[in-house]
């Protein structure tokens, strides 16, 4: 089910939380939503789930507008809100049944659905406990089970892994990937590795505007600029090697890598690659090349570059 966010603006008093934001999510896509605190991630999610309505613009989920038929949209969405609010004094089973009923799961299927969710989210051993007695990780699972109970076409998860331990994070990620095979998933996070590990596509927003959009590798590529290589040559005199590298025509800057004695960081001139030339030079001089790896910018650098000014303040 496609999600189409069309020029939405949301004001909180004089503050613009969303500024003419537009994007599309296709069926079967896992979209990662990145941005510094207060960028408008949560606001966007709240708008898609019909909790708040935008001041202008429209959102359609599977062709249905959130403004015209909110109930229809809501029944297609499974939503895990930020901080995972739950009724702490309800037992897990009752809670899931309650949400299932609200989401219009048929009475005859309800018990089976609840059981299925309990198994899928690994809650079987805890299922008779009250939610308030559960640890944070288990609560998060209840939140996910709740979002999935009616087998929604669209899944919206606001920071699904906050407060979990590394094992649980990996489990939840696996679960999200599994679900994302057939459904449309939007998840927000400010943990970049998480987005990189789970998402097909990344959307970075800042101050209510989209600043980057693409697959993680595309983004990395875009931000990369000139090629940077880490070169380690295990023979020859250090300064000699440095001079030799510098004289290659494609090479722009050479610097000593500070961690290893034999390594250099080599930046190529724009639009060129110096890999081949370095290799040939080593071969010609009979030097032993131990390392030749491109240094990739990670998502973190891109994120900082794009949203820098604001998150630093």
């Amino acid at each position: 089910m496609d999600i189409n966010v069309n020029e939405i603006t949301k004001l909180y008093g004089p503050q613009k939380a969303l500024d003419n934001l537009s994007f599309k999510v296709k069926t079967g896509e896992i979209l990662g939503f990145l941005g510094p605190n207060g960028a408008g991630k949560t606001t966007t999610m709240k708008a898609i789930t019909c909790f708040i309505s935008p001041n202008s613009g429209d959102i359609t989920v599977g062709g249905v507008s959130v403004l015209q038929q909110p109930d229809k949209v809501k029944s297609n969405i499974g939503y895990l809100p930020e901080n995972n609010p739950l009724y702490l004094d309800m037992p897990i089973m009752d809670y899931l049944k309650f949400i299932g009923e609200l989401q219009g799961v048929k009475k005859s299927e309800l018990d089976n659905r609840v059981k299925e969710m309990v198994l899928k989210c690994g809650l079987n051993d805890e299922k008779h406990k009250k939610i308030g007695e559960l640890s944070k990780g288990y609560r998060q699972r209840v939140g996910l089970a709740q979002a999935l109970i009616h087998n929604p076409e669209v899944l919206i998860l606001d920071e699904p892994t906050t407060g979990l331990d590394p094992n649980q994070i990996i489990e939840i990620r696996e679960l999200i990937k599994e679900i994302g095979k057939e459904k449309t998933v939007i998840l927000s996070s400010h943990i970049l590795a998480e987005v990189e590990a789970t998402c097909d596509r990344v959307l970075i927003i800042n101050k209510g505007k989209i600043v980057a959009d693409g697959t993680p590798s595309e983004l990395r590529h875009k931000a990369q600029g000139n090629e940077v290589l880490k070169v380690a040559i295990n023979s020859g005199e250090r300064n000699e090697v440095y001079e030799a590298l510098k004289h290659i025509s494609e090479v722009d800057v050479v610097s000593f890598a500070n961690d290893e004695m034999t390594a250099f960081e080599v930046e190529s001139k724009p639009q060129t690659s110096s890999c081949e030339a370095i290799f040939k030079m080593c071969a010609a001089k009979g030097w032993y090349l131990t390392q030749l790896t491109p240094i990739e910018k990670n998502l973190e650098d891109i994120f900082r570059e794009l949203t820098g000014g604001t998150s630093a303040n």
Binding site: F51, K72, K74, S75, I77, Y79, P81, I99, Q103, G104
Partner: peptide
């Protein structure tokens, strides 16, 4: 939980 409730149909 109000958010949870009101994002249901």
């Amino acid at each position: 939980t109000i958010e949870l409730m009101l994002t249901k149909p």
